[in-house]
Design a protein around this nucleic acid. Structure first.
Length: 467
RNA sequence: GCCCCCAUCGUCCAGCGGCCUAGGACGCCUGCCUUUCACGCAGGUAACACGGGUUCGAAUCCCGUUGGGGGUGCCA
């Protein structure tokens, strides 16, 4: 039998890295078993039906290279099937109408001295349908439901703990529990792979599944949650989790995928950074971990850096293009001041120093801006300039010689080295700080020679005034 | 409160009863390379939550404790 999996997100705005990870694991499983993947949008709630939300799911998946064979299907468009299922459940006595609000149900519970929750208040009232009514499923009073989970083993719930849950809202729309059962059955889903936060809803879907007489249910696999540094479930409100935001910050899709694949799973041979084809080959659903995983940007940075460094330099230059003007960063400059040929010259040097493409401006800003800023509080500045030996003398000598030195890398470099030799001090670092604003960066002189002489002289003077 | 899940270095992963004086990766530290910073290379740091069993033998199996998390909606 062909395996069929589905990625079924609720459209709630941008795609979150946790959702991307769920999509990825579904995809990995489908790919590794030569199966099929379905994209299904879970928009049973009217508030979720916004076209822009669909784009926010589809585009990131496409960018990541996560493909699907069918869909997107919309649960909202399949509502008639869900409604029919609800009707069937009412007719077969598995469900009933209820006209209580949540507040009323809680009050009743309090009065009766029962724990909060719905205690089947309307079960035997024989209410007829009306505009205020919801439909609730009549959960069995006793017995157990066992979920066979590929990752977690058997998980047992007792029916007594399950309240009669709502399967159709008072506006007539069925809830996702019904939609889940009906659609998974109709679409011949064989494996439901999703986040652990949905584990508790599974017995309810199972109950519906049996009541609807759907036969053999799919196999379940609940993935460990992705958490923040406080070990809380990643949340859109608290955490930076927008997949597209990461890509916009210069993380490569391949690196992102690689990192995500390593959260909750690891290859048996300990080789972490590798092509997706190899990951597909090695991936085993039953080897997925149970414990939650911290989405660690530090590790992502490293992986991304490796991917960037592995790029042919021409590709790096192409990919750098959107980032190269320093838009939205602390360093930016006019497009007219940018010289693509100069960037191409230093690109290979930049490439091995950045972990994300958004860091590029930091390494080249001094070439295309007029003034540089000296971060006098930084450790590098203190070490190189404040504690450096004979810095004023070096700068004075530089100012003098750079006024007339032949304006090319070799001559400039030689002049500064000569100053160092004559004064018996390290002259290259102060020269670098004067010209670039910082003691760290790409090889200096080739790029420096592309800057106007007067600008360089002004920078030397500016630094001289600080020491 | 109730239900469910989880528990190996700070972090991610390996370990599926003997190969473990617990391995890899990130981070951090040291050294080498280097007229800067990186890259690269070589080292180092650091963990089986606790207590009981089972077994000739447990990080691995069972039970309990503790800790963490998820759910508890007419959201999904």
């Amino acid at each position: 039998m062909t395996t069929r999996v589905r990625f079924a997100p609720a459209p709630t705005g941008f795609l979150h890295v946790g959702s991307a990870r769920s999509a990825l694991f579904n995809w990995l499983y489908a790919q590794s078993t030569n199966g099929e993947m379905i994209l299904r949008i879970e928009d049973t709630d009217a508030a979720l039906r916004k076209p822009e939300f669909i784009d926010a799911i589809v585009k990131p998946l496409q960018t990541l290279g996560i493909t699907w064979d069918e869909g997107p299907y919309y649960q909202s468009q399949r509502q008639q099937f869900h409604v029919e299922a609800v009707e069937q459940l009412v007719e077969s006595g598995h469900a009933y109408f209820c006209n209580l609000t949540r507040e009323q149900a809680d009050e009743l519970a309090a009065e009766a001295g029962l724990p909060a929750g719905y205690h089947g208040w309307s079960r035997d009232k024989g209410l007829a349908d009306s505009a205020e009514c919801v439909v609730r499923f009549k959960t069995p009073d006793e017995g157990e439901i066992v979920i066979h989970d590929v990752i977690r083993g058997d998980v047992t719930f007792s029916c007594a703990d399950l309240e009669d849950f709502v399967i159709r809202r008072s506006d007539g729309s069925p809830t996702f529990l019904v939609a889940n059962a009906v659609d998974d059955a109709d679409m011949n889903i064989t494996h439901v792979i999703r986040g652990e936060d949905l584990l508790n809803t599974t017995p309810k879907v199972m109950l519906l599944w049996d009541a609807l007489d759907f036969g053999e249910p799919p196999t379940y696999a609940h993935l460990p949650l992705l958490v923040n540094e406080k070990r809380k479930k990643l949340s859109k409100r608290r955490d930076d989790v927008s997949l597209m935001d990461f890509l916009a910050q210069g993380y490569l899709p391949e690196a992102m995928i690689n990192h995500l694949a390593l959260l909750g799973w690891g290859p048996p041979d300990d080789v972490e950074i590798r092509p997706i084809a190899e990951i597909i080959e090695l991936f085993k659903l039953e080897n997925v971990n149970k414990g939650s995983a911290f989405f660690d940007v530090t590790k992502l940075n490293h992986i991304n850096g490796e991917y960037i460094r592995a790029l042919p330099v021409e590709d790096f230059i192409d990919m750098a293009e959107p980032f190269v003007y320093g838009i939205d960063t602390e360093i930016s400059w006019d497009k007219d001041n940018y010289d693509a040929a100069v960037f191409a010259m230093v690109a290979a040097d930049v490439q091995q120093r950045v972990d994300t493409l958004a860091e590029i401006p930091r390494f080249i800003g001094w070439i295309f801006t007029k003034d540089v800023e000296f971060d006098v509080e930084s450790k590098g500045f203190k070490k190189a300039i404040i504690k450096g030996k004979m810095v004023p003398e070096i700068l004075d000598a530089m100012a003098e010689r750079f006024a007339t030195v032949e304006w090319n890398a070799e001559a400039m470099n030689a002049a500064v080295s000569a100053i160092g030799d004559e004064l018996g001090a390290r002259s290259q670092v102060p020269a670098r700080v004067a010209i670039t604003g910082t003691n760290a960066g790409i090889p200096l002189w080739d790029a420096a020679a592309t800057i106007d002489r007067q600008i360089v002289l002004d920078r030397i003077a500016a630094l001289r005034s600080l020491v």
